[in-house]
Design a protein around this nucleic acid. Sequence first.
DNA 1: ATGAAAGCGCTAACAC
DNA 2: GTGTTAGCGCTTTCAT
Lengths: 329, 329
Amino acid sequence: MTTTIRDVAAAADVSPATVSRVLNGRVEVRADLRERVLAAVAEMGYRPNGPARSLRTRATTVFGIIITDVQNPFFTSMVRGIEDTAQRAGYSVVLANSDEDPEKEQRYLEVAAAEQMAGVVLAPAQPSSRRLETLLDRGIPVVTVDRRLRGAPVDSVTVNNHKAAHDATTHLIERGRRRIAIIAGLLKTTTGSRRLAGYKAALKDAGLAVDDEFVVLADFRLEGGYAATKDLLRRAHPDALFASNNLMTLGALQALSEEGVAIPEDVAVVGFDDISWATALRPPLTAVQQPTYEIGRRATELLLDRVAGDGSPPRHIVLPAELVVRGST
Amino acid sequence: MTTTIRDVAAAADVSPATVSRVLNGRVEVRADLRERVLAAVAEMGYRPNGPARSLRTRATTVFGIIITDVQNPFFTSMVRGIEDTAQRAGYSVVLANSDEDPEKEQRYLEVAAAEQMAGVVLAPAQPSSRRLETLLDRGIPVVTVDRRLRGAPVDSVTVNNHKAAHDATTHLIERGRRRIAIIAGLLKTTTGSRRLAGYKAALKDAGLAVDDEFVVLADFRLEGGYAATKDLLRRAHPDALFASNNLMTLGALQALSEEGVAIPEDVAVVGFDDISWATALRPPLTAVQQPTYEIGRRATELLLDRVAGDGSPPRHIVLPAELVVRGST
DNA sequence: ATGAAAGCGCTAACAC
DNA sequence: GTGTTAGCGCTTTCAT
């Protein structure tokens, strides 16, 4: 048997209720009793039973994070921001991987509900919001990151994808490039569609035509970026390439390298989502840098507010993403 | 109020126990009752309360994974192997990040114990095993991955670090290199110390002296690898470099690039832990490739065996790591 | 300020 | 095979 609150109470010669009060510290307890309790807790190595506590209080001190790709540095860096902020407020975080699969996402949302997590940070794999009701009905707050959910009454933290993509494209135009291709991400996500829209707007603003030949769709993954670039090079002759996330950028670089394309001489490249090792590439990569850690931090703060009872209308925080110019353009 | 098992029971006109039996499927239930129950469950959108179930059964269907760095692709790839295998067996997984910090590791081990997780996959941040007792006492099985824990009575899955480092070093010797440096990882970990030992053994086997000038210590992180390489180049003139994990390899490449060192002409480079984008680097990186997904899969299988009641002595699975030769040597 | 007692939602033991 | 009952460990009234 593991030691329970009753064992501690017996050892300290107080009631279980008093032990609970000492441990949760919301109510005053006489100093000497408090001492005895803490001593007993320490000596017996008592750890409260999480499920029992959750069952009683209908809440845990665990936040769930559901992201679409554990292997994407963008998300893992964001996770650090969430972790640090949550930990400082006394919460633990657990991570789950939806793999861009709505089914898996759904399953993890249900796990979060069933486990009565205190809150959920979600990078949505799908634009619809219906599935969140399981959580919201139970009073579990949700904040979406990276992408927004159409019509969902939840907070969100994103970056200005349209402007960032516009900046990146304009930068290429200013470098004298005219045949600018884009590897777009999943259009069902707001990140995918907004970045494509920003690219198109930049071309229009510069008086250039949008040529569909230069627009290839992929899936935000390395292999997708690779295949899309191979495909692009087979059909067209771009002099610049804007890859709309980090993994696809890597795939594109690989494809360009295999085809013997010189960067930036033949094709200038701009990536999205700065990556810690962007400078390790040769040439170093020009990229739109997102404040990943900050995204995580802000999202967690929103969640903490909601947990504390904030019932105000949903807030949407939009952080700036900055173009960092390096050797690849 | 959320709907409970009693509500479902009432709606289906059966007892709560019958609902439970239908849902857990361990006992036969008459077909018509089963129908009514499932219909009620579906209609009412009933989801069992996880904490209540855990409290009663003293177990969850969640595995905990504690790794030392969420941002390291080696671990995230391994996580995929764990996830897939666990999911197939009906378990969910949650991930926690110890950040190479024994304190954080300890905290998460306690969370796992308090939450009564079904099992834990641990990449240890420290060589000592004392802290595992919280879990083992409660009958929660643990399997360590990547690194082993001295004297701990738990299963483990690792690769043959000594041989792999030996192979990598020998490869450099065969390429005619004689001033071979190593960026070693944390020596308190088995991965750090075994890889260093393999490097030294290879030099000795080739009749070469081990020159301490060529051994630099770092911390398995990008910044550490960068600083160590800078330091190394300031003091010595190696013609080859063996970096003993992936992130340090990236840091080393960055430092070499900044110092204008040509790869492989001036310095040949071998990395450890293949990385999906090793081929995106120029030149492509020669590296020791670990079967990351497989490590995760095997670890989870061990855990599933233990959960099923396997009480045999600890097993230690050692998988092969292979040298993949590319342009950097 | 402290203790006694009730009960969160579920499943296991027992009776039928 | 099904229902009834008890209780997992905790927190929270409600008395005192």
